[in-house]
Design a protein around this nucleic acid. Sequence first.
DNA 1: CTATGCGGAATGAACATTCATTCCTGTTCA
DNA 2: TGAACAGGAATGAATGTTCATTCCGCATAG
Lengths: 191, 191
Amino acid sequence: MATSTSKRDHILNSALSLFAERGFDATTIPMIASDANVGAGTIYRYFENKEVLVNTLFQHYVDLFTKTLEEDYPQEAGIRDQFHHLFQGMVRFTNEHEHALYFIKTHNAAYFLDETSRSRFNHLLMILEGFIDEGKEKEQIRDLPSKALIAIIFGGFLELFKLIRAGEIEETDELLTGAEETCWDAVRHHA
Amino acid sequence: MATSTSKRDHILNSALSLFAERGFDATTIPMIASDANVGAGTIYRYFENKEVLVNTLFQHYVDLFTKTLEEDYPQEAGIRDQFHHLFQGMVRFTNEHEHALYFIKTHNAAYFLDETSRSRFNHLLMILEGFIDEGKEKEQIRDLPSKALIAIIFGGFLELFKLIRAGEIEETDELLTGAEETCWDAVRHHA
DNA sequence: CTATGCGGAATGAACATTCATTCCTGTTCA
DNA sequence: TGAACAGGAATGAATGTTCATTCCGCATAG
């Protein structure tokens, strides 16, 4: 039944939600173990130490998110459609992995990330910057630093999902459509 | 020279930047003491414990920020001018207290906040919601949950200043004007 | 000299990590 | 067929470390 793979997965899942909810430093190994229904020592059978665990998790979800955004990317479509694709990807990814994006965002500059984690994250950023830069060239996106626009979209998006997760607002189709419009109006070029 | 008041202030300032940069849990009392050039024990002359320290800090800056937004608020002006006032307040406050807004945002749902801290923070939120609600009534602001719009503005704004602080982009007048337009276009009602 | 404020070593609690032991599961052989 | 065993996986008590907090001796000012 519980194969050793599923045990490793339980650990990763528990770690993800605890890191997202309380942060890396406030989360103890015994907490993760108890949430995952394994002994504390078991975690060390799968991960060398707490930092390796958090880096594994970080890289896994950054890669998965990157794949989600890249998959079926409408290379030939217009900027607005490409934006829709990206936004939909964020929504879908967040619904499939409740805590993952928030975990990534709150830990992307943390002191314990290793070189691989940082470089995977940069790769993700560069994809997004590519999109923004193209939009700016075509004068369909506002002339502000790409990093700034990305920060604004992600900052806004993630705060929004934080509210949804906290139960303060409900995730309806209207809300998501509205949020997409909001973010698009934020970055698009206005006449 | 170093009066006891300035010693307390040094502790608060060091705590603020360390909490903002590394988070509450990753910041140790010895770190704060060494940054503030005082002995570890001295901190306990001024604050009962680490939680009291962080709550003191939180309440202080939430109140200060609230005052900044309320001061000279153009009650009679149009929504756009009121928005300008609020945005300017955010910019000014952030420039005067580099880490304060970021500290507030990253810790506003933390487990160690006491009732007073939570209620002061809610008060701040309610002021902002009041502004948004008024704008929605006048059909000048987008019809989305007020909390969602606030989340989007603050999320975006703070990510932006995180980049500025990290030195990734430069804080110019163009950038700030552009960011204000961006945030306004995000929340305003579009025809 | 006394009192007040400080600093930093001392303390106890909590943590990450280790490791001796137990627990499975599948295999061998009588 | 089933008893005995091997070896990998899992466990949680034990260990060493780091932290928040305390405490006591030393300055400095009055």
